[in-house]
Lab assay of single mutants.
Amino acid sequence: SLNIVTVTLNMERHHFLGISIVGQSNDRGDGGIYIGSIMKGGAVAADGRIEPGDMLLQVNDVNFENMSNDDAVRVLREIVSQTGPISLTVAKC
């Protein structure tokens, strides 16, 4: 069973999320979106629970499971540009 973790980040303390995301597209185009790298000083690094290779399932109320990489990057950028905490739900691989 997948270990699902939801992390809520206070964006007032850390001014950027600090992750890159990578799409693992397979033949069907539904390989999922994964955490690529984590930048020091960002909210994700400070929290420490999300790691490279984790699968990104949801951000706030947006489901990322069947999203293309381009869409995921765009949607994540829109969410980060808003104010307030950000909740990331990942599956630990």
Score class of each variant (00 low, 15 high):
V90G: 00
I86K: 11
E12R: 07
V5W: 09
L76R: 03
F64E: 01
E78D: 15
D30Q: 11
D61S: 09
L57R: 08
D47N: 15
G31H: 10
I21N: 01
I35N: 12
E12T: 09
N69G: 12
D71P: 03
V62M: 12
F64D: 01
D30F: 06
D61H: 11
M11P: 09
L76I: 07
G84V: 03
F64I: 06
I4S: 06
N69I: 09
N60S: 08
E65K: 05
L56R: 02
V80P: 15
V90N: 01
V22W: 13
V62W: 12
P85G: 10
N69H: 13
G84C: 05
N63I: 10
M55Q: 09
N26D: 15
L17R: 01
V75D: 04
L57M: 13
S87H: 06
I33N: 11
N66S: 07
V62C: 08
P85M: 06
V90I: 15
V5P: 01
Q58R: 15
G32K: 04
G29H: 13
C93G: 15
V5Q: 04
D61A: 12
L76Y: 14
P85N: 15
M55E: 12
V73L: 08
L2I: 12
P85K: 15
D70F: 04
D71R: 14
V75G: 11
I21M: 13
V90Q: 00
I50V: 06
R13W: 04
G32N: 06
N60Q: 14
L88Y: 02
N3K: 04
N63D: 10
L56H: 00
L88Q: 01
T89Y: 03
Q58I: 09
L88E: 15
L57Q: 06
D61G: 09
Q82K: 10
V5S: 07
V73C: 14
G29T: 15
L9V: 07
N66E: 15
G18S: 00
T6G: 04
P85E: 08
N60K: 06
I86T: 06
G29V: 13
V22H: 12
G53D: 15
V73Y: 10
G23W: 04
I4D: 02
I86L: 09
N63A: 09
S81A: 10
L56N: 00
V73P: 14
G23E: 15
V75Y: 11
M11S: 08
V80L: 07
I35V: 14
Q82N: 13
G18W: 00
V75M: 15
I86N: 07
R13Q: 07
V7T: 10
G32Y: 04
V22A: 14
T89W: 03
V7R: 06
A91L: 07
D61N: 09
P85Y: 05
R77K: 05
F64A: 02
E65P: 01
M39R: 15
S1K: 13
Q58T: 14
M11K: 07
V73Q: 15
S87D: 12
E65Y: 03
N69S: 09
M55D: 02
F64H: 01
T6H: 09
K92A: 07
V75S: 14
V5H: 03
S87G: 06
T89A: 13
T8N: 07
E65D: 09
G32I: 04
S1H: 03
G29R: 14
V75T: 08
T89P: 00
I79K: 04
V80C: 15
G32S: 08
T8P: 06
G29C: 08
G31K: 15
E12W: 04
G18K: 01
M11E: 03
S87Q: 08
D47E: 03
Q82W: 03
G18F: 00
D54R: 00
G18C: 00
M55W: 06
G84N: 06
D71V: 11
N63C: 05
E65M: 12
G23N: 15
S1C: 07
V73G: 13
T6E: 10
L88C: 13
G18D: 02
I35M: 15
M11C: 09
F64C: 12
A91I: 15
G18I: 01
A72G: 15
N66I: 06
V22Y: 08
R74W: 03
L17Y: 01
S1R: 04
M67S: 08
E78G: 13
L2P: 06
L76S: 11
A72D: 00
N3F: 03
E65C: 04
N60C: 06
C93P: 04
N26I: 08
T83Y: 05
T8W: 03
E78S: 09
C93L: 14
G84I: 14
N3T: 03
M55Y: 12
V62T: 11
G29E: 14
V22T: 12
M67N: 05
T8F: 06
S81F: 13
N3Y: 04
G32L: 08
D70S: 07
V80M: 13
V7H: 02
G84Y: 06
Q82P: 10
R13V: 06
R74Y: 07
S81V: 11
M55V: 12
R77E: 08
I79D: 12
V59G: 03
I38F: 02
I4F: 10
G18A: 00
V22F: 11
S68R: 06
A91C: 06
F64W: 01
T8K: 07
Q58W: 14
S1V: 06
L88T: 00
E78A: 04
V80S: 14
V7I: 14
Q82F: 05
T6K: 08
L57D: 00
V5N: 07
G23V: 02
G84M: 09
E65N: 11
G18H: 00
S81K: 13
V80H: 08
G84E: 15
T83F: 04
V7W: 01
V75I: 05
G18L: 00
V73S: 15
L9T: 03
E12F: 07
R77H: 09
E12N: 12
I79N: 03
V22K: 15
R77T: 04
L2G: 10
N60H: 02
C93D: 11
Q58G: 06
L88S: 00
T6S: 13
D54F: 02
I21F: 10
Q82D: 11
P85H: 13
S25T: 15
T8I: 07
M55R: 05
S81L: 10
N60I: 01
N69W: 04
F64R: 01
S68T: 12
R13I: 11
S25P: 04
I4W: 04
S68P: 05
G84W: 03
N69D: 14
K92V: 05
L9P: 08
S1I: 11
M11H: 06
N63R: 11
D70Y: 07
M67I: 06
S25Y: 15
I4H: 03
E78Y: 04
E12Q: 05
G84S: 10
N60G: 11
D70I: 03
L9K: 00
